[in-house]
Amino acid sequence: MEKPNQTLTHIDQQGNAQMVDITEKPATHRLARAQSIITMQPDTLAMIMSGSHKKGDVLAVARIAGIQAAKRCSDIIPLCHPLMLTSVKVQLLPEPEHNHVRVITECKVTGQTGVEMEALAAASAATLTLYDMCKAVDKGMVIQETKLLEKQGGRSGHWQAEDSQ
């Protein structure tokens, strides 16, 4: 298990929440990849894969939701810096052998702070959208394993989850 950082940067010396001051940080190329998985009934996944859902192409809608969430991340995460993203990719990978859709996201920016939250928000929004579009036929879907897979750039350099693909 990774040793936690001993300093929480979003808390000031008095214990108050604060936005991190990145004024003096250099702009660098940054990348983050994240995933989220939504597990469902086999019939629900088959309907998604065949495109026979009455709401249309749910994978396309989920992809757009993920992209939009990355772009609007600072609107929903209170202390997150607004970023001028240079790339957002959202892959939706149906895995019938596991009855789930794996969502893999990648966000890039050249900036003074990382894009981990944007990648995680994109993965979360895509799986939430799949749930929303399919809940009428499968209320028991489970969203799980929402996590950071990799980050590059910035002072801390490259980090990759041990089990990332």
Results as ranks from 00 to 15, higher is better:
Ala60Arg: 08
Ile67Pro: 10
Lys147Tyr: 07
Leu93Thr: 15
Val58Asp: 07
Ala62Gln: 03
Ile77Asp: 03
Gln91Lys: 08
Glu145Arg: 10
Val101Ser: 11
Gln35Ser: 14
Ala126Leu: 09
Gln35Arg: 13
Ala65Asn: 07
Pro78Ala: 12
Ala70Phe: 09
Val20Tyr: 00
Lys135Gly: 10
Gly114His: 01
Glu145Ala: 15
Thr146Arg: 04
Gln35Asp: 07
Ala70Met: 06
Asn16Cys: 11
Ala125Pro: 00
Asp43Cys: 09
Lys108Ser: 05
Pro4Thr: 12
Gly111Arg: 00
Ser50Asn: 14
Asp57Val: 04
Thr113Tyr: 02
Leu31Val: 15
His100Arg: 12
Leu59Thr: 06
Ile37Glu: 10
Ile76Gln: 08
Ile22Pro: 02
Lys54Pro: 11
Lys151Leu: 03
Glu150Arg: 15
Arg30Trp: 01
Gln144Tyr: 04
Ser50Ile: 03
Pro96Tyr: 05
Leu92Asn: 10
Val58Met: 07
Lys25Arg: 08
Ala70Leu: 06
Gln13Trp: 00
Ala121Lys: 01
Val101Gln: 09
Arg63Tyr: 07
Pro96Ala: 14
Ala46Thr: 13
Arg30Asn: 02
Lys54Thr: 09
Asp75Ile: 03
Gly114Pro: 03
Met19Gln: 08
Ala161Lys: 11
Gly15Lys: 04
Glu162Tyr: 15
Lys71Ile: 04
His29Arg: 14
Ile143Arg: 07
Ile11Gln: 02
Met84Gly: 00
Ala60Pro: 06
His53Trp: 06
Ala32Thr: 09
Thr7Pro: 00
Leu93Arg: 10
Met40Pro: 11
Glu24Leu: 08
Ala161Thr: 06
Val58Thr: 14
Asp138Ile: 10
Gly153Asp: 01
Gln91Asp: 13
His81Trp: 01
Ala65Val: 14
Gly153Tyr: 01
